[in-house]
Each structure stands twice: as C-alpha cells, then as structure tokens.
Design a protein around this nucleic acid. Structure first.
Length: 748
DNA sequence: ATTAGGG
DNA sequence: CCCTAAT
C-alpha cells in the first residue's frame, strides 16, 4: 500500500526512520526515536549562535552600509565555517561547509541580478547551498561519511534530493536540468505541507506559478527553529520571473541555521514528499478546515506549519507538518503545540510557523540544581512557547526529594514579517529583538499538572501530588511573560465575533520589529499577551476560562499578570489565523463548542450502554439522546471512551466536572462486560425481567466488592445463578436494571 | 451513514 | 472534539 510505495521510493542505506504511512499512532511513534538520540543541540546555543551572527552582521553591515551583498559573501562564508565548526568537529564536515560557503558566493553572484533582498538573504545561512553542494559531492561524502551524523544526513539528503529530483522530473515531463529539479524538490520539500496536497502541480510548476505575486508580498517568515530542525527558513519571497530557471529556484529563500539535526528532520520530510502533489484547487473547505485545526497547527519540535500567502488574497494554507518526537509515551507531552491565529482583515495571510528552537539544558550539574530535575516535564511558555523536555523517568531520591530535570527548553514560534526592502541586517535585528524579547522579557513560571495549572503556591509537592512519580510525568511548566498585563479582552464570543487583532495591511506595509503582529502596539509582549489571551478565550472551554480567571486574580502569584495558562499537553497559544472579516467563517468550519457532559447525561449514557452495549452508538443516541441535537452518536461514543478512561485513572487525575464514582464503576463494569460479549447478544438484554440479585447491603464487602461483583454479574447470563464472592446471585436480566453494588442483595 | 480508533 | 478508515 502506501507504505510500500514509500518505501520503494526511499533511498537505500538510509537509516533515519521514515514515517510510514501507517496508522497515525504508529507513524507517530516511529519518529520519536531519533529526535532524542541525535543529541539535541542546545537551543540556547543556537540562539547564541544566531545572536552572534546577527551581531556580526550588524557590525558588518553598519560599517559597510547598504550594499551588503558583497560583504555578505565573505561574512557568510565565514559564518558558515564557524558555524560548521561550532557544531561539528569533524574535518570532513567543515570541509563540506567550506565548500558550501564557496558555493554560496558563486550562487550569490550568479543571482546578483535578481532581487537584492532575496539575494542577501540567501547568504545568511548557506543551508541551501550546502545542500546543493552536497548534492554534487554526495558521492564522495556519503561514501566515507561513516557515522558522522552530519555527513550521513547530508549525503542522505542529497540522495534524497536526487531521488526527488528525478521524481519530479518525471512528474513534470522532464526537467531541463538536474540541478533545477533537484532544487525544486528541495523547495517543495520545504514549502510543502507534508501531508497536504497544497501545492498545485508539483515542484516546478508550483513554484513557478506562485512566483509573481508572492514576491510582492512581504512574506518573510521565520518558521521554526525547532529542536532538531534548527533552521530558520524563509519561505516564499519568490522571484517574479518564473522562467529564470536558476533564479527561480534561488528565490525560494531559506535561511537555515544549520545544525546536526536539522537535516535529519528535514530529510524525513522527503519521505513524505512524494505523495504530496495535488492540485490546490482540490482543497475544499474541509481541507482548509483541517489545516486550521489544532492538529495541523501543532508546531511541535519537529513540526512546523506555515502557510503561504495567497495571491488572490484568499487564504491558502500551505503547511508542512512534521511529526514530532514521541519518545516513549511521554514524548507527546514534550511536544508543545502552539496555535496561532492572526485575525486580520485586509490582506489575508496566514502565518503559521515560526521560530522555535529547543535547547537542551542537560545540566549535568545536578548538584547545582540541587535535587531539582524535572523529568518528563515540559515547559510551556505562553505567547512564547518553550518547553522543557525531561528525562525519561522521574527520579526520586531517598530523602523524598523530588528530582526533576529539565532536559530541553523549547523556544516558540516567532512571527516575523519584514518588508521586502528591509535589509538583511534589519531582518537579523528583528529576529534578535524577537528572541531577546522572549528570553529577556521576564517570565513567570507556572506549574502544570496534567495540563492543569497548579495555582496554589503554598501547597507542597506532595499535597499537590507532584511527589508521585506518576504525576511527575505529567508535570509541566509554563513560562508566562510577566512583564505585561493582559487585560481580558472584552470579547469572549468564541464563534461569531472573532477578534480582529491586527490589520494586515499595516503589517504588510511596514516591517515589524517584533514578533508581535500588531505593529500598532508598541510592546511586543503586550501583543503577545493579548493575542494569547484572546486566543485562549476564543478557544477555550469553560473550565479553562475559569481557571484563567482564577489565575489572573490569583493573589498567590505576585506578578500574576501573566498570560493565561496554556492547557497542556495541548498547548495552544498565540494562534494566529487570518480572518477575512466576513465570510471567513463559512470557509473555515469552526470547531464545535465544547459541551461537557453533565452528570445526568453521563448517567443516561451509562444506562444506555449498559443495555445496548458499546457498539451501537446510534441506538444509544436514539435511545437516550434523541433530543440532544448537539450530541451525535460519535459524541456519545467519544464520551464513553473518555468515561472508560476516566474511570481507570486515579481520581486525582480526573478533570472537569467530577463524575460520580458510582457511575464510573458502572462504566467499567459495562465496558468490561461488553468487551467480552461483544455484539453477541445484541438486543438480547433489552430490558425485560427484574433484577434479582441480592446481597446484604450492609455486607462489609459490599462496597469494596462492588466492582468485581458487578463485573461478574455482567458476565452472567440472564437467569443464571452463580456464586459471586460471598453472594449468590440470580440474574434475571442484568440490564433491565441498573446494577450497582448497593443493589446487590443477598439471596441466602 | 455508522463504527472504531487515533489524535 | 476532530479526523479517517473501513464498513
């Protein structure tokens, strides 16, 4: 099937796990491995690196003023080399980089006639060039690349490129030159949503098609600097000249902070790429809707989505998705998802991508941190996501100290928009500012447990349940900007009146200095805060809203002017989605408002399931929720699912309106019963007869044995007479009555 | 349209 | 709740 296909396409000798087109769960789980194994590069290091570059550039550009292209060459080359050395010590790699830089120069000059901005950008990070180089030198490199991650990956990528190139060539009826197609393939890879078919007709054409207008847009975006994908890419900004083969390819500017891992993840995309091409026009509402779904907003460590501006002013989400690392079950918790929505009127551009990086705070100095190491935890920064990935398991020292280790720290997405005429230097500064704002803006730490904010600062860890290893795994942190006040927006009207946070026309018109999209506001953080808050309110459910409120008014938090907490593991914040004022909603199906099941509803559901079983949701619906229009059978099914889950987890871990234990018990009982008896006796138990199960209500074991007893009862046939525990029961019809421990009476 | 599962 | 695949 798909899987096979893909496998066939992939290059040999490629070790990196390819995400097979298998059940999501599987796919997801496959990737994880590597994420962590290739040693993560400290995000801060990256940032530092970036900063360094920026500074250097700044100096350089200031001294050399405008026309930076010339200087850039040298600078870039240098940077590249340094960069390379910094992350790798292998001569080979360095060599590789060197070549890369050389190549860069060449490339640059070649494209000198093109739009300068792009050209300049091109210099920044010789990622593309490298790839290009690699492409040519892949053979040599790959042959002896041995174990060097870098080397391997690169060569792999090259291979991949070639593969892709060929593929595309074919698809397009033959590409004129290899390099070109190769490049395009690369481009596509970077710009294309892995799982969507957003791009029109495959590489070349697609790129060409979009060229003209896109270039006009100031769409310089910085996708994410993700943990393993620490490259800043600047998609779009294509050259208006479609036929300039070379330039065209070059116009897809990508800034990449190369890094050991990035290739890895990037490469992964290749595997997904092959199946991507499909006409955009095919994308229907549903598609779009899907794209706007949290699922696709997830910008996890290795995941990044961003959308292309659309020439027609409409929204054309072209995103890319990367599977996240799911190292063990815990991984998903490490993944921070962030949603961003920008509501803007005029120009409809969707930016969903960002700048995020992860740093590994592998503080070996456990001593320094005392006994604090956060394991299996994550840090989430509101507005600016940052997450901490923890070690696999929580350690617990004898002295009952809780050991936590914050393994990684993810810095969020940063949206940057720069004018087409902005200088590279300013761009860098912009990035720098953004990063600085985030890191230096002052943050407040929040603690999450099971995704819920732990608000009481006075409680002890054990009281909070954080002393338990189990809970430790769900421990999370949030980094909330503490420097700004985020007054609750006057709008809490989720559906009908999405907040318009910014005016795109303005955004586009000028270059922004901060990640904030609303250039009208002076303070980036404020914007973030507002956005976050808004987003949350718009999206959140009641519970969340409540907790938010609580938090905002929580006096135990001195400077709790922080933003709303981000619900984990589904962290969503700062979602920015273009909103075309009017009819946007019709296009974008809104997520249904959340409507928590009331206890009575649960009761009805349980009742129905007890009688009908777990595989007849439609009947359940008809039977007990006929009038509840908002409850579909799918909802019921889902609810049951969650009920079962809820019943299984510790009461402590349960959230939302508490469901009576009694009901949960029944859930479990019914569930186990129906699990065994599948659909066998469908309808057989249709309420008839009277339950005659008797046991002393006051029997000491009644309560404790309740579940077991009940479970046993469910396994009995109607009319059966059996001994269960200390009881003798006569079952006339288990489902004709609600069976609970207390209903059991002794027949003896 | 339903069901079953993964997310 | 959403999304999909499979019925």
């Amino acid at each position: 099937m798909k899987l096979k296909k893909r496998l066939d396409c992939r290059p040999h000798g490629f070790h990196v796990a390819i995400i097979p087109k298998a059940p999501r769960s599987i796919r997801r789980r496959v990737q994880p491995k590597k994420t962590d194994e290739d040693g993560e590069v400290c995000a801060f290091e990256l940032l530092a690196s970036l900063a360094r570059q920026i500074l250097e550039e700044e100096i350089e550009s200031s001294s050399a003023s405008s026309n930076a292209s010339g200087n850039d060459h040298a600078a870039i080359g240098k940077d590249a080399v340094e960069d390379g050395r910094q992350y790798e010590d292998k001569p080979m790699k360095t060599e590789c980089l060197d070549q890369g830089s050389c190549e860069v120069s060449a490339v640059v000059s070649e494209s000198a006639s093109l739009n300068c901005n792009q050209k300049c950008l091109l210099n920044e990070f010789p990622l593309v060039e490298d790839d290009d180089i690699l492409q040519r030198t892949s053979k040599t490199i790959s042959s002896n690349s041995s174990s060097k991650i870098r080397g391997d990956l690169k060569s792999e990528i090259c291979k991949s490129n070639m593969l892709e190139g060929n593929f595309l060539s074919k698809a397009e009826g033959g590409s004129p030159n290899y390099r070109k197609s190769c490049f395009n393939s690369m481009e596509n890879e970077f710009e294309q949503p892995v799982e969507t078919k957003a791009m029109d007709m495959g590489g070349l054409n697609a790129a060409t098609t979009r060229n003209s207008k896109d270039s006009a847009e100031l769409c310089m975006k910085f996708p994410a600097l993700t943990d393993s994908d620490k490259d800043v890419k600047l998609p779009s900004c294509r050259d208006p000249v479609p036929n300039a083969s070379f330039s065209m390819q070059r116009n897809d500017i990508k800034l990449g902070i190369r890094d050991d891992d990035d290739n890895l993840s990037r490469f992964n995309k290749f595997s997904n790429k092959l199946k991507v091409y499909r006409p955009v026009t095919r994308i229907g509402d549903r598609r779009i809707r899907k794209l706007l779904t949290p699922k696709y907003w997830k910008s996890a460590p290795k995941l990044k989505d961003f959308e292309h501006p659309r020439t027609d002013g409409g929204m054309r989400p072209s995103h890319r998705k990367r599977k996240t690392c799911y190292n063990h079950e815990k991984c998903h918790r490490d993944v921070l998802y962030k949603r961003r929505r920008f509501y803007d009127r005029s120009s409809v551009e969707t930016f969903d991508g960002g700048f995020s990086c992860e740093s590994v705070t592998n503080s070996p100095e456990k001593g320094r941190n005392r006994d604090k190491s956060i394991s299996g935890s994550m840090l989430q920064a509101n507005g600016m996501t940052s997450s901490v990935k923890g070690h696999q398991s929580s350690l617990r020292s004898k002295d009952s100290n809780v050991k936590l280790s914050i393994k990684s720290f993810k810095v969020p997405e940063i949206f940057i928009e720069v004018s087409e005429t902005a200088t590279v230097g300013s761009l860098k500064r912009t990035v720098m500012d953004a990063v600085t704002a985030i890191l230096g803006g002052g943050i407040r730490v929040g603690v999450l447990m099971h995704g819920k904010k732990v608000r009481d600062d006075n409680r002890t860890l054990s009281q909070t349940g954080l002393a338990s290893e189990d809970n430790l795994d769900t421990l999370g942190f949030t980094l909330d900007p503490s420097s700004v006040e985020a007054p609750a927006p006057p709008l809490v009207c989720p559906e009908d009146h999405p907040l318009l946070l910014s005016d795109a026309s303005q955004l586009v018109a000028r270059s922004l200095e901060t990640p904030a999209l609303d250039s009208e506001r002076p303070n980036a953080l404020t914007d973030l805060a507002l956005l976050t808050k808004t987003e949350t309110l718009v999206e959140s459910n009641h519970e969340q809203e409540i907790s938010h409120t609580d938090i905002l008014t929580d006096t135990t938090l001195p400077d709790s002017r922080a933003l709303v907490p981000v619900p984990a593991p589904n962290v969503e914040a700062l979602a920015v989605v273009p909103l075309n004022q009017k009819s946007r909603r019709s296009d974008i199906a809104q997520r249904r408002t959340r409507r928590p099941f009331s206890v009575s509803e649960v009761e009805a559901l349980v009742q129905a399931v007890e009688e009908l079983g777990t595989g007849r949701w439609r009947d359940v619906k008809l039977r007990s929720f006929e009038d509840a229009d908002h409850r579909t059978y799918v909802d019921l099914k889902d609810k049951w699912k969650t009920l079962v889950h809820t019943a299984r987890i510790a009461p402590q871990q349960r959230r939302g309106e508490p469901v009576p234990q009694e009901l949960l018990d029944r859930v479990l009982a019914a569930h186990s019963y129906w699990s065994q008896h599948q659909a066998k006796q469908q309808g057989k138990h249709q309420a008839t007869g009277v339950l005659k199960i008797e046991a002393p209500t006051d029997h000491p074991n009644c309560a404790t044995t309740g579940n077991q007893l009940e479970a046993c009862l469910y396994s009995l046939k109607d009319g059966a007479v059996e001994e269960v525990e200390d009881f003798v029961v006569v079952v006339v019809s288990v489902y004709s009555q609600q069976v609970t421990a207390c209903d059991v009476k002794s027949v003896r």
